[in-house]
Design a protein around this nucleic acid. Structure first.
Length: 480
RNA sequence: UCCUCCUUAGCUCAGUUGGUUAGAGCAUCUGACUGUUAAUCAGAGGGUCGCCCGUUCAAGUCGGGCAGGGGGAGCCA
């Protein structure tokens, strides 16, 4: 067996000293021809491997370069230097993989996030991305743990879908037909998808919600957690063409149950990361502090990253209706002094991100749950309220990120649902399978969608969503 | 897709009213030193100034187009 190593994390956490061990990892820096800062990805902290002067031959010494992969055998002892508690005095060092220092792009210095994005295959080896992706892992794990504890069934909804009526966004087409113009055609000149692989036109999924509802009408509580695709030409710090989404769906639930679950869920996974990724979050807090120092005074956030997470976990989210939000915005000095690009003058308008940011960052200074939006600006499946004007929708807005959750109580009444679909020109026959849930044993139910990368952004403090997914896909970019 | 800013060495950036041979720090290489913490000190190598077209005696510098990137907006998660 080759792997008889100790993980650096375990080694640094333990107080044990004076024992022989083997470590393997990648060289971060090699100082003074003696001190190797070794990292194996188990933690952000490096192990100092000390090579006694003259103990290694000249050629091996030369091969210990930034980025090289090595195996070191020796004794763990209390460190003679100041920066660390323990260190390993190496009796042997073996080069597992060389790294040409002249060509290896990562240098022992600060790099811009934009540069690292171009070398996404190597950026895992930096402190920042090491921390980000360990936190991402923890959040993903916590999500499954949370729902499992609550008795939710993890449902795998299809990635290739025939439904294009949901209207969540532009879709990527899936086809095996030739793209050179020789694809079989109908009489009217359109592509004949009956000849395609699935015998019909198919796309990559934009949401698993409708399928999730089907399963909730049998298991009571389900959740999905998988990749989702939007072919929107969005170029922002919070949109991706391929992203991961969590979509719980609960039978026997109304809008309030939905909000309660969403809030408990968000707090649970943040708390989990705070408990299991303390060092990573401390590092990211420090990183963000340094980044904030570059900004002008007014643009700096009042709280550090950990402080902000602490605050979110320990305080109730603010819950207000759309109507109340409009009143607050209309009466705000910001609106009166015409500081908004889009002034709030009447009920019914959709909120712009400047308004959402004002509510979350200026007015309440905490996450806000907005409910009961006008039905005109929301999807067909949301439950119509008795006032005839609004639907039982809820959006959770987070400071710095904006919309992090979108959800609603679903319209379970067959007549109301089909009436709304007809108004919105959604063909009933396409979603006949969905309508079956309303025909056979319908019940009040609710659910929401949470963008995984956005919560990772929130927890890690990363400004650009492209830096919280290993290999981001966005317009004009699908490298690696 | 729209608005706006940017593109000069491997990286981060200077580069004056257009004017000889384009600079710095870090990284790399060579040497010195040897309990260092992004080690330090000395020296060396490294550039088609994003691409194309134009203005001019002369363009890294001015103008136009294209490409790529950042930030903001829209769409949303």
């Amino acid at each position: 067996m080759f792997n008889k190593r100790t993980r650096i994390k375990d080694l640094l956490q333990s107080d044990k000293v004076n024992y022989q061990t083997t470590v393997m990892g990648w060289v971060r820096t090699f100082r003074n021809n003696q001190f190797i800062a070794l990292n194996d990805g188990s933690t952000n902290n490096n192990l100092q491997v000390v090579v006694a002067l003259g103990s290694l031959d000249e050629t091996t010494l030369k091969r210990i370069t930034t980025g090289a992969c090595i195996k070191a055998v020796g004794e763990i002892i209390p460190s003679l230097g100041k920066g660390q508690k323990v260190e390993l005095t190496a009796t042997s060092v073996e080069i597992l993989g060389d790294s040409d220092a002249e060509k290896f792009p990562l240098q022992p210095k600060k790099h811009s996030l934009e540069f690292l994005r171009e070398i996404a295959h190597l950026r895992f080896r930096t402190n920042t991305f090491g921390a980000v992706f360990r936190v991402r892992h923890s959040l993903a794990f916590a999500i499954h743990e949370f729902f499992n504890k609550k008795g939710f069934v993890y449902l795998h909804t299809p990635i290739v879908t025939a439904s294009d009526a949901e209207g969540a966004g532009e879709m990527f087409k899936v086809t095996t037909l030739p793209l050179d113009g020789t694809a079989p055609k109908n009489e009217d000149g359109s592509i004949n998808f009956k000849e395609d692989f699935f015998g019909r036109s198919t796309n990559l999924t934009v949401s698993g919600q409708l399928e999730g509802e089907l399963a909730a009408m049998a298991f009571s509580d389900i959740y999905t957690f998988g990749p989702t695709f939007r072919a929107e030409n969005s170029n922002t710090t919070r949109h991706l063409a391929e992203f991961w989404m969590i979509e719980p769906e609960m039978a026997f639930s109304d809008l309030e149950d939905n909000m309660n679950l969403a809030e408990e869920f968000i707090k649970y996974i943040i708390r989990y990361a705070m408990e299991h990724n303390k060092e990573d979050l401390e590092f990211l807090t420090q990183r963000l502090d340094e980044e904030e120092k570059q900004k002008p005074q007014n643009d700096r956030s009042e709280m550090g990253l950990l402080q902000k997470l602490e605050f979110v976990v320990n305080n109730d989210f603010e819950r207000i209706t759309y109507t109340e939000a409009i009143d607050i915005l209309k009466e705000s000095n910001h609106n009166k002094k015409k500081k908004f690009n889009y002034l709030i003058d009447k009920w019914g308008v959709d909120l712009q991100s400047e308004h959402e940011r004002y509510l979350v960052e200026k007015h309440f200074k905490k996450p806000v749950i907005l409910t009961n939006y006008p039905k005109e600006i929301k999807a067909f499946y949301m439950r119509q309220n008795d006032d005839g004007k609004t639907v039982a929708a809820m959006d959770i807005l987070a400071p710095g990120i904006g919309e992090i959750v979108g959800g609603s109580q679903r319209e379970e009444r067959y007549d109301k649902l089909t009436e709304r679909m007809t108004e919105m020109h959604i063909p009933l026959e396409e979603l006949d399978w969905y309508l079956d849930t309303r025909r056979f044993g319908a019940c009040p139910h609710a659910g929401f969608g949470l963008g995984f990368e956005r919560i990772v952004q929130f927890v890690t403090g990363m400004g650009n969503i492209r830096d919280v997914i290993p290999f981001p896909r966005y317009p004009k970019s699908a490298s690696f």
